[in-house]
């Protein structure tokens, strides 16, 4: 039962990264792609009807985590207190910047929210990447399952690290570049003409940086936490996951060279999902490892909710996810195709 919920929560967070990832990416690239007011409007239109739905995966994933693994939810959210609060502020500012910018026809108003959109999107990507790296590196858990990390200490991933150290910052940079590339490929799918040409020209540069960073990050992860290979050694078939990471990365390069934007974007989705599955495979059955003593690790067993709640949850979760997928199909079909400025909005 615990393993099922482990993979359910992982799937929800994975859906979040793949879906909200591209609209975060649009924010990261916004200053470079949005040269004219028309470009900026088009960029926002590519994500306008879908970004908040994408973000729901984070909220619903958080709720499901609370429900299935209360100890992990309590320990991690209070332990990463300051970083989590900053993430919340960034989410607020980002939502406001997307929705409020076009409500006023004032140049500085729009420029301000454009800037806020970029800064909040970029920092969120970095924080999400760093968060995952924190989970892989582990935290100094106490006997009661709790910890508290300051934002930084000496920038080294030792036994008393900060939320940010060289390893987690590297993870943040991987996320920044990966989501920027993901967003670029999405924009290429959703636009045409000059804007599409511009975004296609950004792709190879981002790709080469991502290629290097991904390699460095895999290497660093194995060095910081040698035990992440344990599961892989025990079940060599799991090495397929990193292989998929590599293949999808090559696929992005291959398809984007041929201007097959849709395929390249699909490869990018697979890349992000495989990176997460790879991390989850390395962790399983741990949820949050300790930096000092494996017996203090928060495991599925330690954090799991009671059996009645989880059994009932299985029924509504599967039903609810079916509905959610249905809504997404409806919305994405409704707003499929290239975006244009001519199509009327609502009301005015």
């Amino acid at each position: 039962m615990g393993s099922i919920w482990f993979w359910f929560v992982a799937a929800m967070l994975g859906a979040y990264v793949v879906l909200d990832g591209f609209d975060l990416g649009v924010g990261i690239l916004h200053p470079w792609l949005g040269r004219s007011e028309n470009d900026k409007q088009l960029l926002l239109r590519t994500i306008g009807p879908v970004w908040d739905g994408n973000e729901v995966w984070l909220i619903a994933g958080g709720g499901t985590l609370y429900f299935a693994f209360p100890l992990l939810y309590a320990s991690a959210f209070s332990g990463f207190y300051l970083a989590l609060m900053i993430v919340l502020w960034l989410l607020i500012m980002r939502g406001a910047s997307i929705e409020l910018r076009s409500l006023m026809h004032i140049g500085v108003w729009r420029a301000f929210f454009d800037g806020l959109f970029f800064v909040s999107s970029a920092l969120l990507a970095i924080f999400f990447g760093a968060a995952l790296a924190n989970v892989i590196r582990g935290v100094p858990l106490g006997a009661d399952g709790y910890f508290f990390l300051p934002l930084w200490t000496n920038w080294l991933p030792g036994t008393s690290p900060g939320i940010l150290d060289w390893y987690t910052v590297l993870g943040g940079l991987v996320a920044l570049v990966a989501l920027a590339l993901h967003g670029a490929l999405y924009v290429a799918v959703k636009t045409e003409g000059e804007l599409q040409q511009r975004v296609r020209s950004v792709v190879p540069r981002l790709w080469i940086v991502l290629f290097i960073l991904t390699g460095m990050d895999l290497f660093a992860s194995v060095n910081v936490r040698p035990d992440i290979l344990d599961n892989y050694k025990a079940f060599p078939v799991a090495f397929l996951v990193p292989a998929v990471v590599g293949i999808s990365l090559v696929g992005i390069f291959f398809f984007s060279r041929k201007n097959a934007d849709r395929n390249a974007f699909t490869c990018s989705c697979i890349y992000l999902a495989a990176m997460l599955v790879g991390a989850a495979t390395a962790l399983y059955p741990r949820l949050l490892p300790s930096t000092s003593n494996p017996s203090l690790d928060i495991t599925i067993q330690k954090a799991l909710s009671g059996p009645h709640a989880l059994r009932v949850g299985l029924v509504w979760w599967i039903f609810g996810m079916g509905l959610a997928v249905l809504y997404f199909v409806i919305v994405y079909r409704m707003f499929r195709g290239k975006v244009s400025l001519h199509e009327g909005g609502y009301g005015h």
Binding site: T64, P70, Y73, A309, V312
Partner: peptide, 18 residues
């Protein structure tokens, strides 16, 4: 959160999902 998640985590998760 730790002691109540097994009960009220349920409606909170359901709010997100439904």
């Amino acid at each position: 959160a730790q002691v109540t998640g097994g009960v009220i985590g349920q409606p909170l998760a359901m709010e997100g999902v439904f």
